[in-house]
Simulated scan of single mutants.
Amino acid sequence: MSTLPFRPDFNAVLSLCRVSNLPTVWMNVLTAAVLSGAVSNSAGNGPVSHSALLVVLLAFALSCFYCGGMALNDLCDLEHDRLHQRYRPIPAGRITAGHARAVTLALFACALACLLPVPHRAGLVAGVVLLFVIWVYDHFHKRHPSTVFAMAGARLLVYVVTAFALTGGISAVVGIAALVQAAYVLLLTVVARHEGHTAAGRYRWPVIPWMLAAMPLLDGFVLAMLAHPAWLLAGVVGMGLTRAGQRYVRGD
């Protein structure tokens, strides 16, 4: 009697990739695009349309990098999760390690492929660097506390990839936004690591989910100061989308 092949639950894939956090990535890309002048400096239907499509393409590419990084993180942490976080998709049996590897490879391949048609090849080079930093963090973060800087660096590279892909370089204001967000991610990572050392292993209040959701808001404040106050609304929307997504898919 033949048995049907195992098919992963689609919700398990969403959980594996922590898709609820994607609005934070989208806001990073939007911030870098606005501060690079790729959004505000366009004029006319043609350039506006072209720039908008390019920003959407970059948001999709960096979403794939993020989701691939999260999936790789679960693969690298599998033995730890089997003991301490059995609700994660792989130890819970909702998806096999083999399927998770396939998802990871497909996401990274798609991310790099999306960077091929961008106007400046520097964006693709920065994407390869981002992929390397993600690999370093996922493979070594349980053994080397200093890899918190790799996590912050990966988030900083979201801005770098976007700016390089759009303009071939990075302006001072994009650098400021990237450093502010990287510093925040560094703080978030330290707070998240401390959570595991609390008596219950969890904070009584959802500190990490709220800190994750606040990432777009931080970008909104930066844009409000460096570009136009109206951009703060985009940060508020990004925070709301992240919190709404966390109701269905855990982001921590």
Rank of each mutant, 00 (worst) to 15 (best):
D219N: 15
G240D: 05
A111M: 04
M211W: 03
L156A: 15
A126G: 14
A152R: 06
G168I: 01
R143K: 13
M225Y: 13
F164E: 15
V236I: 13
H144T: 07
M225W: 14
L115Q: 05
V158A: 14
A154W: 02
A163P: 06
Y137D: 11
R204A: 15
A213H: 05
W210R: 07
A199L: 11
V161A: 12
V222F: 01
A182C: 10
F132P: 00
L233T: 12
V129D: 14
L130P: 12
H144N: 12
V191N: 09
D138V: 04
P206D: 08
M215S: 04
A111L: 06
H197P: 00
L131V: 02
L157Q: 14
L233G: 04
L186N: 07
F132W: 15
W135D: 13
F164P: 00
G201P: 01
I134L: 14
A126H: 08
C110W: 05
M215Q: 08
A177G: 10
L241V: 00
A165N: 11
F108H: 10
V190F: 13
L241T: 00
P206I: 01
A199D: 10
V191S: 05
A165W: 09
L156V: 12
T198A: 04
A122L: 10
L233S: 10
P206T: 08
F221D: 06
P117Q: 07
G123M: 01
F149L: 15
V160A: 15
L179Q: 02
T242C: 11
L112H: 05
G235S: 06
V173S: 14
Q181C: 12
L186V: 04
Y203R: 00
L115K: 04
S171W: 00
A106C: 11
V133Q: 08
V207M: 07
G127R: 07
L112A: 08
W231P: 09
R143Q: 13
A152M: 08
P117R: 02
A122N: 09
E195D: 10
A163K: 03
A183Q: 01
L116Q: 06
K142P: 13
G196A: 05
M215N: 01
L179K: 03
T147L: 10
L105Y: 14
L226Q: 12
G169Q: 13
T167D: 06
P145F: 14
T162S: 15
F108P: 02
R204N: 09
L107T: 09
A109P: 06
L156P: 08
G169A: 15
G127Y: 06
I176P: 09
L166K: 09
T167L: 02
G220M: 11
L112S: 04
L188T: 03
M215Y: 00
M239K: 02
P209H: 03
L112M: 08
V173G: 00
A214L: 08
V158L: 15
R155L: 06
P117L: 02
L187G: 04
G175A: 07
L241C: 02
V133F: 10
A199M: 00
W231N: 08
L131T: 13
H197Y: 01
S171K: 00
A163W: 04
L124V: 10
V207S: 05
